[in-house]
């Protein structure tokens, strides 16, 4: 289905959240909910999203929603999905699991792997802001090389995050042979929402990893969330891709020519300490990653 912004309803199913200004995570959640609608049961772990949307007695979520423990999102959502079938909730009910990168690729990965292997009928969206933001910017397995965080501080002996490759959730999920996996970015809402729409129509465990820039953790002006998100994709530091259960993964958007990584890095305080040779190294890492994608993905 082609997504048409004009036809979309003004009805908001998430409203009034106490997120930071310019929050990418809440953008991802809102866009997903625009597609999934009222017949959605939303589950989140203890994370930024949960802490800003449902603090008693207020609630910024207008559909059924639950908060579960940090490592427990996928299993909780699995239980919801299995029970929904057992209790006859109907095929049109969506069980949406929404978690950040730490809750997904670190502490939550075992549970997600279990849900993927059992192919429980959930839509799992990981909003990736590349660190533990709810606790105040600590590195996760999704933090990019060279990035400052409070646990990868910069100084005479440190250039920030040392891990050169972010944990690749998309390909981990492909290895589980889930029926649908995708990467997306909040800066490309049509692309993202089309992927959510595809996921909605498929039965089984669908996983979407969506880049969600964080002005607070990354150190940029809140008005630049979309701009930064686009720059990451244009520089080849993030890809928009999908896998529909067979064949090769496919890029859903390919920049005509990759732009240099420097303007993207220079926009953010978390990279401000990087020297030209560091930036050069990041560009080389990008090139190697991109070459691998060109060799193994469909265009």
């Amino acid at each position: 289905m082609a997504i048409n912004l004009k036809n979309m309803s003004d009805q908001e199913l998430i409203y009034g959240a106490k997120t930071c200004q310019g929050c990418g995570a809440i953008m991802a959640a809102r866009m997903a909910m625009k597609i999934l609608g009222e017949k959605t049961c939303l589950a989140t772990p203890a994370c930024c999203f949960a802490a800003t949307t449902t603090v008693y007695p207020q609630s910024a979520i207008f559909v059924n929603n639950v908060i579960t423990a940090f490592p427990a999102l996928a299993a909780t959502a699995s239980g919801m999905a299995v029970a929904a079938e057992a209790m006859g909730w109907g095929d049109d009910v969506n069980i949406l699991a929404l978690a950040g990168d730490g809750g997904t690729v670190d502490i939550g990965l075992q549970g997600l792997s279990g849900a993927a292997e059992r192919n429980d009928n959930i839509i799992y969206i990981c909003y990736d802001n590349e660190a533990y933001m709810n606790t105040g910017v600590q590195r996760s397995a999704s933090t990019p090389y060279g990035s400052w965080t409070t646990t990868t501080p910069t100084g005479p002996c440190s250039k920030g995050e040392k891990n050169k490759i972010k944990k690749n959730l998309f390909e981990i999920m492909i290895a589980h042979r889930v029926p649908y996996a995708a990467t997306a970015s909040v800066a490309y809402p049509i692309d993202f929402m089309e992927k959510v729409e595809k996921a909605r129509k498929i039965k089984g465990c669908k996983v979407i990893h969506v880049s969600a820039p964080c002005p607070t953790g990354w150190g940029y002006d809140p008005s630049k969330t979309v701009e930064i998100g686009k720059k990451a994709v244009e520089a080849g530091l993030w890809q928009l891709a999908e896998w529909e259960g067979s064949g090769k993964p496919r890029l859903t958007y390919q920049p005509k020519e990759l732009s240099p990584v420097e303007p993207y890095l220079k926009m953010q305080k978390r990279f401000k300490h990087l020297q030209p040779e560091d930036i050069q190294e990041i560009q080389e890492l990008r090139d190697a990653q991109w070459q691998r994608i060109m060799e193994t993905y469909d265009k």
Binding site: C41, T68, A69, A75, T76, G79, V82, A83, A86
Partner: peptide, 10 residues
């Protein structure tokens, strides 16, 4: 966690 999720659905 799954028991929690299932119980939440009744």
């Amino acid at each position: 966690a799954a028991a929690l999720g299932a119980s939440m659905m009744g």
